[in-house]
Design a protein around this nucleic acid. Structure first.
Lengths: 140, 140
DNA sequence: ACAAATGATACTAATATGGTATCATTTATT
DNA sequence: AATAAATGATACCATATTAGTATCATTTGT
């Protein structure tokens, strides 16, 4: 059971870093220094994120990425959706034999319910809430 | 996001079949006829399930497997635990850089919370509840 | 003795995940 | 205009997990 993959986590890491930074445009090199996520991998992730409008990108010298959304407009589900292809709900494992049909497979029904619950939770976790969480702890 | 794997689902399928059957000891061949789960694969799954005391097994002619527990004593979490090695909670993805330490990584905390929720749900889904679910639908 | 069963185990195949490398293109700076 | 520093696109490789098969050994009822 892996709710989020490394891609997702790294993407979140990069976004958190950008959200905290006062800098406007941040290069992969700078992301790397801040996060220590392997550079080539990070780069691919950032490219994908900018295709999906989480970042804008700027080519050429002084180029890099700029966060395009406010940190409370990005939730974990957005990121997970990008890297975990729709978090697709489990297909039926069984053929006709076991249930009468896929549509009333009890197992699938129950698992789907749980997945929906998880999706709802992921929706509620925004980048802003993650930033906040850390800020609160630091004050203690 | 795959909450349960095929192994788990097939195991559940086999257990459901055994729970419904009036037969005492059921051979792999018979399981296969009832579930259409690939025979060799099913066999391995049943072997594992009997090592884990979900089934008892009987060698030799007229041998096979007998369900060892009542259907309300087996929950999805038991099966998932067997085939998905403890449903291990996500380790931290980041090095020191991003959070102060693994112990106050907001992302990990949130994901762990969700996972605990999922585990609780899986605990609540027993074989009996799956059987019931189908029974109820059939009556409609 | 034999056939029908599981036990143990080794092996293979497919898929998903994680990660690197490289060439093309763009752009600020000199 | 040349150059260096950046991303875009894309192809590739490595590793781990999941799915599934095959085979020989052992047991047991008939």
């Amino acid at each position: 059971m892996k709710l989020i993959t490394r891609h997702t986590a790294y993407a979140v890491g990069a976004i958190l870093f950008a959200a905290k930074s006062k800098q406007d445009i941040i290069s992969v090199e700078e992301f790397y220094k801040g996060t220590r996520i392997p550079k080539a991998f990070l780069r691919k992730i950032l490219q994908i994120l900018s295709k999906r409008n989480i970042f804008s990108s700027f080519k050429g010298k002084q180029g890099g990425f700029r966060l395009r959304k406010n940190s409370n407009q990005i939730s974990l589900i957005d990121i997970a959706d990008i890297f975990q292809e729709g978090l697709k709900i489990n297909e039926c494992f069984f053929k006709k034999k076991l249930c009468d049909s896929e549509k009333n497979c009890a197992l699938k029904k129950k698992i789907d319910d749980i997945e929906r619950m998880v999706v709802k939770e992921l929706e509620s976790i925004t980048i802003a809430s993650l930033l906040n969480y850390n800020k609160r702890r630091r004050l203690k």
